[in-house]
Simulated assay, not measured.
Amino acid sequence: MGLNKRYDGYQAYGYLDEKDFKRFKMAKELERVEEYLVSLQPEEEERVERLARDNIFISLHDHPTRLPESLDEVFEYTRVGRDHCAYKGLSKSYYDAVFDNMLDGTTTITSANGWKWEDILYDLGMRLCDLAHQDFLIHCKKVEDIHKAYREGKIAWVASVEGAAPIENELDRIDILYGFGVRMMGITYSESNNLGSGIKEDKDGGLTAFGKKAVRRLNKVGMAIDCSHTGYKTTLDVIHESEHPIFLTHVGARALWDSKRLSPDEVLKACAQRGGVIGIEAAPHTTLTKNHLKHSIDSYMEHFEYIVDLVGIDHVAFGPDALYGDHVGIHNLYASQLSTKKTQGSLEFEKVEYVKGLENPTEASKNILRWLVKKNYRDSDITKVLGGNILSVLDKVWRS
């Protein structure tokens, strides 16, 4: 059901009147910049349509919400606490399920530094309230919800928290987040926390004693683990400690581009050897290569092919990490919370205003599939990387 979604036109917080909270002029969900689609022959277009219709397509990591049109208003918009889901944009995508990481480090409602427990709950609660007033996105709590969304022409919305700093030293906060419907958590977000080291750090001390307890608790409650922003040694420790396979939801191959934001072969192999899945990242200026110094769908898919060759088709998927609005601008504004400069690497590259072919979740979903068809990947392999591989791991990790 990647096509013909059953969307009724609901807009974020449409249950409230204009006077109930401050409104902002929002960025366009679609056509903010000129759309780019991978060119195909007519018979390839037909194949794309069939594959989009017949397969479950899952984004392993995105932020499918809208930014204000003017970034000058972003800080005020965030303090209001109502992140706007891009329902219309998502309805035009091929996705049947999206792991939504919400505001993560930009959740600066009560603190300019972000990542506070109260802010995470505020962000999550507001989003859940909005979701409760519409029927296009299904709050996904189990694998069957993804199949249900696919059957009904809807999208399964998976709540994710990108880093575990907000739990501080309280294991029970994992249970609380699970109770609120969170189904994935990152171990660290670039900076170290009580669980272990982040990729921003010069030294990686590995998984802490508390971190080992947290991994075991995540396993027990049935919450998926993500190590995309986690230090390499800490990630290897998590892979060893976890009863279940883990995810690297949005990474690339460091062998292709020397940046801490991307994973070395050792980590990629270890994740796959324990049955995990690796999602390919597309946030601006991440998955570059020496062949493609300008970030685009081409550099992105070079990382995909490298990792497929390295670990096998059964362990790769897509986590574009896109949003609706000026993604480059938001990274610049929140550079300290998002740790972009400390993890980007020192190689020279051509800066872009947006990532061509991956401007937002809708365009990314279309071009990933179009690229795979253009390169004549087999239907069975496309089925795996669009969602089959993810579902296989979730069947093991989610306990209900």
Rank of each mutant, 00 (worst) to 15 (best):
L3G: 07
N4T: 10
Y7M: 12
Q11I: 13
A12T: 14
Y13C: 14
L16W: 02
D17C: 06
F21A: 15
K22L: 13
F24Q: 06
F24P: 15
K28W: 05
K28D: 09
E29W: 07
E29G: 10
R32W: 02
R32E: 04
E34A: 11
E34G: 13
E43F: 11
E44Y: 11
E45F: 04
E46D: 05
A52I: 00
A52D: 03
A52N: 08
N55F: 01
N55D: 08
I56D: 03
L60H: 08
T65E: 12
P68I: 11
D72T: 07
F75S: 07
E76C: 13
R79C: 06
C85Y: 09
A86Q: 01
Y87I: 14
M102I: 08
M102V: 13
I109P: 13
S111I: 12
A112K: 11
K116D: 09
D119C: 04
D119P: 04
L121G: 02
L121I: 15
Y122L: 09
R127Q: 13
Q134F: 01
L137T: 00
K141R: 13
K141V: 12
K142R: 11
E144A: 15
I146D: 08
Y150K: 03
E152N: 14
E152S: 11
E168L: 02
D172F: 04
I174A: 14
F180I: 02
G181K: 09
M185Y: 10
I187N: 07
T188W: 11
T188R: 00
T188M: 03
Y189E: 07
S192W: 03
G196M: 03
G198H: 12
G198N: 06
I199M: 03
E201W: 06
K203C: 05
L207D: 05
F210I: 02
F210A: 05
N219K: 05
G222I: 13
T235R: 14
L236S: 15
I239C: 14
E241Y: 10
S242F: 12
S242T: 03
L248I: 15
T249E: 01
V251W: 00
R254S: 14
S259C: 14
S259I: 07
K260D: 03
L262R: 11
D265F: 04
L268M: 12
Q273C: 06
G275R: 03
V277N: 12
E281S: 02
A282L: 12
H292Y: 14
S296W: 15
M301G: 01
H303C: 15
V308M: 04
D309K: 15
V311L: 05
H315C: 10
F318M: 06
D321T: 09
L323Y: 05
L323W: 01
Y324V: 05
G325C: 08
G325V: 01
H327C: 10
N332I: 12
S339K: 00
K342A: 10
G345A: 02
G345L: 03
E348H: 14
E348D: 12
E350M: 09
E353S: 04
E353V: 00
G357R: 00
G357Q: 00
L358N: 08
N360I: 08
P361N: 04
S365Q: 09
I368G: 00
L369A: 08
R370C: 05
R370E: 08
N376F: 06
N376D: 15
Y377W: 13
R378I: 01
R378C: 05
S380N: 07
D381L: 02
L386G: 01
I390T: 14
S392W: 15
D395R: 15
S400A: 14
S400E: 08
